[in-house]
Design a protein around this nucleic acid. Structure first.
Lengths: 338, 338
DNA sequence: CTGAAAGCGCTAACAT
DNA sequence: ATGTTAGCGCTTTCAG
């Protein structure tokens, strides 16, 4: 248990002061090559390790950012996180990841924990439950930078990175129509979340622009496997069932696929299918599920860049920016009627 | 931007000293009910938030633990992480998650970052590449608690939580034999990792105990989809191809499944298949893939409990403990020859 | 039960 | 280019 060494130990050994050591270690410009080298060598020899805690307390910058996602094991979020980490590494920041598990209470608790830790900034995507945004507003009060991505709230007046969900939905539905589908159902998500609202809007507009009627009866809600499973059952019992489904989620699309097969119907000939998010499992399904890629890694990088910009600019209240990424329709067999 | 308030602000407002406030806030026993309540009320009123950075510097305990996994988007690891988080929440600890992406360099860099952050402890599962363990040994030198899980090194003399991989493999292969399989191939992983070594060992012993010969020719290496895909191709070209595969990974089992189907062979009649890890996608495959569940969430909880124990006990060098969890064979259609 | 005083390890004016 | 000094906000002896 080699007692941890401090800059004072190094200073003493070298007959200089702690400030000199600190400066040498931090690449301060006005320090001689010789001392810098001596300090670095001694630091290595003594197994010195920068104490970020002390540094954070003194400088007011922790070099830690917090990232909060609904859940880290959804491929979309884990890819965003990985993008954030890449950018954070480049910038010398540490990343704390928290999960809300889509619960408002967890989200609130996590934000408070991050504030206690005095993180320099937070990147978050909101919990499904969340409809009260005061905990996010508190970050701004406490002067902590905030960037929201994917599931955002426009009214918070905060930097955001989103996908053009409207466009993704529009493209998906247009593609189905070009494949000859005439009665396209939609699996939607909760409408207080921007992403699901936009997807529904894109769905409606694509129908309208192609002269197809909008029928409330074939819009079902729910984004989990079981939702897709059950909703598809209901839809197939209609007197005029749909000949396609555009699902706002890969998971509910998967559920639908299971129901369709259980009814011995063919995909895509009887019912064509498109999901949303490009979860890895979609390409392993049979038939492979068409879906929409969200450029998740890029989204993470963009969010991190916005955040670091905000951190560097300190208080200066730039008007908040929104970065919009383009979706990419991945056409696979589930929607391709040759 | 409400300037953050400190215990001194509270103290001044209440005409007491900062020490009293600190004690009141930390539930110190010898403090009067009245002052405690007054302090708590004032703290709330002033929007006070405990400064963990300052507290960490002074007390030498950061209340942060680091968790390093190869990658957070493998379901196994994300479930372990979620178990760790649950336990950490209960114990009032924050969790920093890092990913090595299975690279030794990243792993080393992350450990150093965690040391700089002065985390109280680290829970890790080793990168596939790692064969030099000095960075883990350094944690012990720096007096930072360490618990390894799943991919561990026995020689480090450190607390560990592992699955009984040997037993899992043994059960899987025994099951295949009971289904009438006579020539069972194995997809193995790198042999410097305990988990893959144990799985191979269990495979061998199960064969032996059931009077089947071990044939080096039908042991292939690789745990990614493409590995399974390619290795299965090679196996099917043998003069006497296998009638089953026990794969040390769900992913290579999936690759194998694709090859088998491409050859118009039936699963499980022509080739039975079992994977390892119970990745969620395995239940959506056709046929659903038999696999082995690792009780990942429990593994996370156990690892966290070991770690917090070690942190509380401080230096005291307990003999290191190993917790072994039991695997659970999930028999699905891919291995069930009715 | 509360106060006084010291200091965790570092950084950043301000000096020289 | 380096030294001096002060202090970030908290905890923790030691006193009383």
């Amino acid at each position: 248990m080699s007692k941890k060494s401090t800059i004072h130990d190094i200073a003493k050994a070298l007959n200089v002061t702690a400030s000199t050591v600190s400066r040498a270690l931090n690449g301060h410009p006005r320090i001689s090559e010789r001392t810098r080298e001596a300090v670095e060598e001694m630091a290595k020899e003594m197994g010195y390790q920068h104490n970020q805690i002390a540094s954070a307390l003194r400088s007011g910058r922790s070099n830690i950012i917090g990232v909060m996602v609904p859940t880290a094991d959804r491929s979309f979020f884990s890819r965003v996180v990985s993008g954030i980490e890449d950018e954070a590494n480049r910038m010398g920041f540490n990343v704390i990841i928290c999960q809300s598990n889509d619960r408002y209470e967890n989200e609130k608790r996590n934000i408070e924990a991050l504030l206690r830790l005095r993180v320099d900034g937070v990147i978050a995507s909101m919990a499904k439950e969340t409809q009260d945004y005061t905990h996010f507003a508190e970050l701004k009060n406490k002067n902590t930078a905030l960037v929201l991505f994917d599931r955002v709230n426009e009214k918070l007046g905060v930097n955001t990175v989103v996908l053009d969900d409207y466009l993704g939905a529009y493209q998906a539905v247009s593609h189905l129509i070009k494949q000859g589908c005439k009665r396209i159902a939609h699996f939607a998500g909760v409408q207080h979340l921007n992403i699901y609202r936009e997807r529904l809007r894109g769905y409606k507009d694509a129908l309208k622009d192609h002269g197809l009627p909008f029928d409330e009866q074939i819009v079902a809600y729910g984004v989990y496997i079981e939702d897709g499973f059950n909703n598809m059952k209901t839809l197939l019992q209609l007197s005029n069932p749909p000949d396609a489904v555009f699902s706002a989620s890969d998971f509910s699309a998967l559920g639908a696929m299971q129901t369709i097969k259980a009814h011995s119907l063919r995909i895509p000939q009887d019912v064509a299918l498109i999901g949303f998010a490009n979860e890895p499992f979609t390409s392993f399904l049979e038939p492979p599920l068409s879906t929409i890629d969200q450029h998740s890694h890029e989204m993470g990088i963009a969010a991190a860049q916005l955040l670091f910009e905000a951190i560097q600019n300190g208080d200066r209240q730039f008007p908040s920016r929104t970065i919009v990424l383009n979706p990419e329709l991945l056409v696979r067999k589930s929607s391709l009627r040759v």
